[in-house]
Design a protein around this nucleic acid. Structure first.
Lengths: 355, 355
DNA sequence: CTTAAAATTGCAACCGATTGCAGAAACATT
DNA sequence: AATGTTTCTGCAATCGGTTGCAATTTTAAG
């Protein structure tokens, strides 16, 4: 437990003022080169470490960003976190990360903690049961930039980073139609969440555009878990006639659904073509490999933090850039290919054609 | 941009001293009940929020834990993070998370940041190329508890949380032997890392225990990536005679290895039995389902944070509890079953027998 | 050699909460 | 009524950097 070295100690040692030491350490232009060097040397030699709190207290800037995420243990979110941390770290920002575990209650508590920790900016992906975003009011009224990603609030003037879920779902569904599917089931997530609501919309629009009637009972709302995939598959197995296509709102669920259907003797894509969403690694492991919408998680995290920091640095104005939409694309693999590709056949299925 | 409310404002409003306000807000027993109530009411009404920095500066306790992790975008690590965040959050601690991206250089920089941020404790899983742990010296000398998990330093008196990799690998290898394998290849990770070094050891010991000669060229050192699995498989395909068992140090690599072998016409487990490590979700998707060592990531994260907090609270003494070893177990699935189980056959392979 | 301009340095007042110690007020005891 | 206890409150110093402004030193110009 050695004593902590402060700028005062360095000042005393060099017989100069703490002011100069502080400026020197921060590379302030108004400090003589030689003095600076002396300060750096003394600091290194004495084992000085800056006290971030004192600095933050005074500067009212924390160089810290907060993140509130539904869960950390999802493939998508961990990609996002990795991207966020990378950019934040490079820019000299710390990241305080917390999970809402899909409950509004925890989200509210976390928001409060973030606020008291004086984060310079906050990144949020909403929980399942978040009904409103009143708990972020303090951030708005204090002018702390708040950026939503992926799970964003609806009808609000919030800065957000998303993909075009409607379009992506439209493309996915259209792809199934083009493969000859006429009875397409959609396994959806919680429809209170914008992401899943939009995917449902895209699915509907695509049917409409191809003059296929929308059937209420073809939409199965689930929590998209592995278990849910099994249950959905069982529901589907009882449909008569059997559907010939399924568009699932995530890959985990799609994969367990496929497994269950295969066990029941259904051929994929022969009997039923399947398309998932997220392009998780498991898409390339299930047999047949799963067609899925590639969802750039890492990029989303990077872009989110970059935007926030740019705003904080006054480079750009997030409040004007209201929504950033990232590109997503359908990666076609065997699970949806009823017709052979006209192009030279994809080889190992690893990186099949795009649409 | 409203003005920030401080305890001084509340004090003025109520015509009492800031001291009493501070005590009141912290529920100090020496403050009159009525006064407390008045303070709470005023605080709520005026929109007061505590300034964590001022508090930390004074208290020298931050209620913040730092985490340095190789990468966030791995299934195992995201489980660990989720577990850590959960426990930390419940105990009122913040988590500052940073990635070393497997480089010692970043790990050193991150350690320094954590130190300057005055984390109350630090959790670390080492990077690939970390050669020594000198960069954590400031933590030792200042008595800041430091806890390593999974990727821990060797021959050091550091508190660490691990599984018994030697034993787990021994069990896995023994299982292959019991299935009749005699020519067992081991696909390993970077052998500078304790985890992989130990798994190799366990593999060797098991061979020894069954009087099977260890062959240098049966150990393939890789980075355990998907790509590495393909390359390792190709190496294996050129061996003559072909091995009849493979023990891979992680699942990702095992799965891509299996895929490649299958494409080459090898039957799994008929020709070659395979065992992986981690029990990732993909083990249940690949066909045949992959036998693997269940590795309790979430639990590891929870235990790690809980130990640290207990120590900080003076409940336990981590410096005495030098190593915590978590239980791991082999989950047997089809990929390694050359012989049928004698017990009633496992049904869907979802949760097959244990050894 | 003077004087003005430029380059450095330092004083002192913050930032906002916490806490040891002393003093005041309220209550209890002869 | 006097004294001893308890219960509450407040003073003032402290945590360790940061920064506006003034003071001092150096350099340049006349």
């Amino acid at each position: 437990m050695e004593k902590e070295i402060t700028i005062y100690d360095i000042a005393r040692e060099l017989s100069i003022s703490p002011t100069t030491v502080s400026r020197g350490l921060n590379n302030h232009p108004a400090v003589n080169k030689n003095t600076k060097q002396k300060i750096f040397d003394a600091a290194a030699q004495m084992g000085y470490r800056s006290n971030a709190f004192a600095s933050r207290l005074r500067k009212q800037r924390t160089n810290t960003l907060g993140v509130i995420v539904p869960r950390l243990d999802s493939n998508f979110q961990s990609l996002v976190m990795a991207g966020m941390e990378k950019v934040a770290n490079e820019a000299g920002y710390n990241l305080i990360i917390s999970q809402s575990l899909e409950t509004a209650q925890k989200e509210i508590a976390n928001a409060r903690t973030m606020f008291e920790n004086r984060v310079d900016g906050l990144l949020v992906s909403l929980a399942y049961d978040t009904e409103n975003i009143d708990h972020f009011e303090p951030f708005f009224s204090k002018g702390i930039p708040l950026l939503f990603y992926d799970r964003v609030p609806e009808n609000k003037q919030c800065t957000s980073i998303v993909i075009n879920n409607i379009q992506a779902a439209h493309t996915a569904t259209t792809h199934l139609v083009e493969q000859g599917c006429q009875r397409i089931v959609h396994i959806s997530g919680n429809l209170r969440i914008n992401v899943y609501k939009d995917r449902l919309k895209g699915y509907k629009y695509a049917l409409m555009d191809h003059n296929i009637a929308f059937r209420e009972n073809y939409v199965i709302e689930t929590n998209l878990s592995e278990q849910a995939g099994v249950e959905a598959a069982n529901k589907i197995l009882q449909m008569d006639p059997l559907p010939d296509g399924i568009f699932v709102a995530n890959d985990t669920c799609a994969v367990s659904c496929i497994k269950t259907l295969k066990q029941a003797g259904i051929s994929i894509p022969g009997d039923i073509a399947v398309v998932g969403f997220n392009n998780d690694p498991i898409t390339r492991i299930i047999e047949p490999n799963l067609t899925s919408v590639d969802y750039p998680g890492g990029e989303m995290g990077e872009v989110a933090v970059r935007s926030l920091i740019n705003y904080l640095d006054g480079v750009s104005d997030v409040s004007i850039t209201n929504t950033i939409t990232l590109r997503s694309e359908l990666v076609v693999r065997e699970s949806s290919l009823k017709k052979k590709l006209t192009a030279p056949p994809a080889k190992s299925g690893k990186a099949a054609g795009m649409v």
